[in-house]
Structure formats: C-alpha cells, structure tokens
Design a protein around this nucleic acid. Sequence first.
DNA 1: ACTTCTGTCTACCAATTGGTAGAAGCGTGA
DNA 2: TCACGCTTCTACCAATTGGTAGACAGAAGT
Lengths: 196, 196
Amino acid sequence: MSTRQRILDTALESFGTTGVDGTSLDALARELGLRKQSILYYFNSKNALFQAVVDEAANEFIDELDAVFSGVDPRDVWAQVEGAVRVVFRLALQRPALLGLLREASRPGSMVAVQLSTRLAVHIDAAQHALETALQEGRVLGGNARLLLFSLYSTIMGVATEVEVLRAMGIEPSLRTLAERRQELLRFLRVALVPA
Amino acid sequence: MSTRQRILDTALESFGTTGVDGTSLDALARELGLRKQSILYYFNSKNALFQAVVDEAANEFIDELDAVFSGVDPRDVWAQVEGAVRVVFRLALQRPALLGLLREASRPGSMVAVQLSTRLAVHIDAAQHALETALQEGRVLGGNARLLLFSLYSTIMGVATEVEVLRAMGIEPSLRTLAERRQELLRFLRVALVPA
DNA sequence: ACTTCTGTCTACCAATTGGTAGAAGCGTGA
DNA sequence: TCACGCTTCTACCAATTGGTAGACAGAAGT
C-alpha cells in the first residue's frame, strides 16, 4: 500500500478515536514509522490531512450504503432503512473509527461540514425523494420528508455510536448488547415508519 | 458572582463549543481577565476543571428535566417525553454550549462518563421504571425498556444538536427550522410510542 | 502592630505543537 | 556517468501547552 494511503488510514483511525485536536502529527508519524515531515510532504498541513481523511471516510461510508441500496427495491423505503441500519451497525463493530470520524466531522462549528454536504448531496436528495413519494402514496408515516430523514439519521447514528451514554445506563457495549440495541432500534423505527 | 463560579461558567461555554482539547487555560484566563495560575488555584489541573464543569452541566441538565417532570403525571410517559423534548430544544436555543458539553463528555473513550453515570443513575432508573410499567400496561409501544429509553435519548439529542448534519442537508439552523424540527420529532416519537 | 489566610500575580519551565528549509538517498532514463 | 524527480530525512523554529514556585497585596483577627 502506498505511503499516502497508509497515512490516510492511520489518520482516520486516530482522528476517529482520539479526535483531531487530540492527535499530533508527531504521534501519527511515530505510529507510521515515519517523521512528521513525510506526512507534511503528502499533505500540506494538518488541516489538509483532516479534509482528505474526511473525504476518504465519506467515500467509504457512501460506498457501503450504495452497496446495500443497490440490492433493494428503490421504492421499498423500509428495506432501505433496514439496510442503512445493517451498514451502520456493521461499521460500529468493525470500523468504529469511521463512525467516530463522521461524528468528529459533524461537530458543531466544524469547518469540514461543507465538504461533507457537497459529497453527500446527491444521496441525500435521492433518499429524500424516495421518502417523499412514499409519503404521498401512504406507504410511510411522516410529515416533512427531509426532517423525517434527519430524524432517522439521528436515531440510527445515535443508537450505534453513543456508547458512553450506554455505559452510563449500565449497559456494557458488547457484541450481544449491540445486537439487542439493533433489534430494539429496528422495532422502534418500524413502528414509527410503517403504517399498521 | 464568585470567581470560581465565573471560571466554571466560562469554561462550560468554551469546552462546550470549542471542545476541551481546543480550549487552553491561557485562552480561558484571557477571556476571564485573569492569569491561568488563578484558574489553577481553584482547580488543580485542567482535567479537574473539566470534571467540575461536567458536574455543573449535569446538575443543570437534571434540574431542568426535574422542573418539567415535577409538573407532570409520573405515569404519563408521553407527557414526560414531550417535556424532555421541550427542555432539550429550549437548551439548544438558549444554552447550546450546555448540550455541546454533554456531547463532549459522552465522546467515545471519554473518562468523565463514569461521573455522568453516577450523577444520572437515579434519574435513569426512574425513567426506566416508568417506561417498564407503561410497557406492561400497554400504554406505550416497545420491547426492552432500557433500550427504548436509549433510543429516545439518541433521537432527541441528535435532532436537537446535529446542526452540521442539518446544514449538510441544506437546512440552515434557525428559530423557525428549530421549531419545525421539533414538531416533526414529536410527531415521529408519538407514532413510535403511543398505541393507536 | 503582627500574623494568617485568601486570592491574584510575575517569572519560569520542560515538553510539545504545527510548520519551514534544505540536505541526502534512491531509482530511472538519457 | 550524469541529471532528475520523488521521497524521506535531519535540523530548526517560534509559539503554545499544562503546570510549578514563590512573591505580593489585602482583608481579618488577635
């Protein structure tokens, strides 16, 4: 794998777990067996690296979602929701840093949000459109399609990533509790979305 | 107001917006018209200050929730949810830094989570118990009470605080869109919780 | 008048930060 | 062999970081 790619991967891991402010170029370089000047050779500044990492993460996230959505009837909103939940929970288990990075990038006041928005705009519009027609045809319960999409996003990402809140509630994050969380989430969303 | 309290307030504001790592004691002191040594006089270390701020924030959050819940039938789960939504959205408007700090404190790997958990344990248990009996009596839809509570928390906090995601969706956070978000959220939660 | 306590200050400190300048190693093509 | 471009390095740097040591001011009590 190219050095550039190794840097991106390691940075994603570190940014997504320790945070951007909590990750120094020196520490990153040490982890890579390099000097930080080599990192700055590929990325002109720490912020440029962060932006590249956000792009990388957005791509991976979108690819995962696309892969699942491609095998699903575009009119079947519930199947899409189920697919999204499956993707997010698999990532929570296998690539927690990826979700951590999205969380980091979507912190209030983050300057990379613009980037994310242009990156995701097409997919958001598609999802919104699917929701809208489903709403009109009474196949889904909801008021405003875009705000409903936002609620869905918040719920799914929250349930998948708020592990510290979970701990505070006395539930230790583990494979089993993850599965239980997912099951309750799906039940919750089905009741909220699918007409009886 | 005592200097100690001023430090706590200013720190909450800064920690909740810029983040802990993004806030230096020097910057904090400058904002207060002090030297950082004066801050370290009241709090032995930056981390001690952070812990104190988390305590402060947890207290305020709990007080707000208690105030709303006290005027509501303890058996009326939906009224409690409505109250919680009202509190969180008012805070999102008037004290965004407070929610930001809770978000900061609940970052994966955060070391203050233990603190938060002991601080909130009683209230979590109470809410869970109310949910449980409501579930048994069929007044609320759901499977596992604790996981349902967790889903509710994730949804409400997410919808109220994920402003950058909202922006990425082309919705500028404002008073009007906040009200719309809240309305759609309440509709969403009502469908998900209240039996037809 | 003297001490004591509280609070704020100046003066430092070693370590770390992101970043610059430029040299050295290295393989490739002429 | 030479030149060249790519990559990684050593050597620095000014600024900032959290934190320590201790002086100084003022109020309060005796």
